[in-house]
Design a protein around this nucleic acid. Structure first.
Ligand SMILES: [Mn+2]
Ligand SMILES: [Mn+2]
Ligand SMILES: [Zn+2]
Ligand SMILES: [Zn+2]
Lengths: 146, 146
DNA sequence: TCCTTTTTGCGAATGATTTGCAAATATCGG
DNA sequence: CCGATATTTGCAAATCATTCGCAAAAAGGA
């Protein structure tokens, strides 16, 4: 069981340079529930660091993702925008409500099962998977007349 | 068991107007293995219809997708580009080789299982899912020394 | 502290997809 | 078959998230 490291130690452990922009990004992701896009992170970051640039956000999200500290996700049918969350949480998947935008996280061993079946049956080496669902959350499902 | 309808009948059955551009698009998708992007379909279409426009391709792919005749997919880690295939094939999922680009299709009942678990546990109404895997296909996995 | 490498801010570029518009086409009732 | 009406198309320009080139600033190591 790992005591969660400070942003600085996480960067160090990942062999990345420690910059105030990266620390800020990690702090913002720590503070949020995750599932933020570059633009939202940019706006949040500007509160503390008004001179920070959007391309710095993008570049660092890529660095952090490749370093394994952050996970990039797609939600909803429209994959036009990338979202990010800390990679520290356990493997889980997402359901997005197309009406209100709520994201429901869930776990299941079945995806791991799919992966191992796929690996065994087709002799492939799986490096990455994108699994997401969308539809209406309980609050947004129209009720039938009582 | 449905005898596969002609492109024209498929459009009619879906209540969409029959245009030569749409018929061509359906024919091209019929002829290919699917998994084509708008640009490839555009190039293929131009062979038979030199004046066809790329935005017509995009617009009709959306129409056909909404009509349920075509399915839109994302492949590879870079989801920056949409791919399409006929929606007539059985529910299946995709693995993309990041090295050679090959796409391996596979079936599994486990995803349906995930959906029903998700639906039951969170009372959501699932409308769409995006499931895709990527990595190295058998041909692209480096062999260890014999 | 000095030197070398990496990162940053800035502005411009990219590239897939979308959109406004007027001309062309499909559908349909007569 | 014909004309009126609703849709669709080709064209050109716009979007918009993400990427890039560059010179100045900051980080890390000796
Ligand atoms: Mn999550
Ligand atoms: Mn397929
Ligand atoms: Zn909702
Ligand atoms: Zn391959």
């Amino acid at each position: 069981m790992t005591t969660s490291l400070s942003p600085e130690d996480r960067l160090r452990a990942a062999g990345q340079r420690i910059t105030s922009q990266r620390l800020l990004l990690l702090r913002l992701l720590d503070a949020s529930d995750g599932h933020l896009d570059a633009e939202s992170l940019f706006h949040a970051a500007q509160q503390e660091m008004p001179e920070i640039n959007l391309s710095t956000i993008y570049r660092n999200l890529e660095v952090l993702t490749r370093a394994g500290l952050v996970a990039q996700r797609y939600f909803a049918r429209d994959h036009s925008r990338e979202y990010f969350e800390l990679a520290t949480t356990a493997e889980h998947y997402h359901f997005t409500c197309t009406q209100c935008g709520k994201i429901i996280e869930f776990e299941t061993p079945l995806i791991a099962q799919v992966r191992s079946d796929l690996k065994r049956q087709h002799n492939v080496n799986i490096r990455h998977a994108c699994i997401c669902f969308e539809g209406l959350c309980p609050d947004c499902i129209p009720q039938s007349q009582p």
